[in-house]
């Protein structure tokens, strides 16, 4: 996390992204205030009720938001490495595909896709190879964990073909 090789002082100007963080923190605090306001504050016999701790956390978040804004203004956040967007999109796509296909296509196919898309995120873009490899690998894992070790993993068409 401290890969910043350049000293942070090289870019001492207001940091826009860090301002966004401050706003997000303040917004979370707002959500807590709003959500907790509809709770029955009935504390029973303890004066610390179900709303007390959330309130305390929300106030602290507001304080942290202000602090973050000040550091952002002074540009005191560490320098960030340039991020490549494409690999992130590949991998997030893989996770999303697995999530959406899990119930329909079963464990092997959906997880095989995740495997292939993650590999694509790291530069192996030959999907016609990686998808089958991923599916076979996932299927073997499914057999081991689901059939031998009794873990309940969702079955789909491929699994039903064999079992």
């Amino acid at each position: 996390m401290t890969d910043g090789n350049k000293p942070a002082s090289a870019t001492r100007r207001p940091d826009g992204a860090a301002f966004v963080i401050a706003v997000v923190l303040a917004a979370i605090a707002g959500v807590i205030f709003w959500d907790v306001s509809r709770l029955a504050g009935a504390a029973g016999y303890s004066q610390v009720g179900p709303t007390t701790v959330p309130h305390a956390i929300a106030y602290c978040l507001l304080g942290l938001a202000i602090w973050t804004a000040i550091e952002a203004w002074r540009g005191e956040f560490p320098a960030r490495e340039r991020q490549e967007v494409a690999p992130v999109v590949w991998i997030v796509g893989g996770l999303a595909a697995q999530m959406l296909l899990l119930k329909v296509a079963g464990f092997s196919i959906s997880t095989g896709l995740l495997f292939a898309l993650t590999a694509a995120g790291f530069g192996k873009r030959k999907l016609w190879i990686t998808i089958p490899v991923g599916i076979v690998l996932s299927f073997v894992i499914w057999v081991i964990f689901s059939k031998l070790l009794q873990l309940s993993l969702p079955a789909g068409p491929l699994e039903h073909l064999f079992f």
Partner: peptide, 22 residues
Amino acid sequence: PWLYAGILLFATLGTIGANPSV
């Protein structure tokens, strides 16, 4: 590529095995 693909495979396998919910 294979190492991280495998890591994600196992990470999600554990979650699915404990609670197969979208």
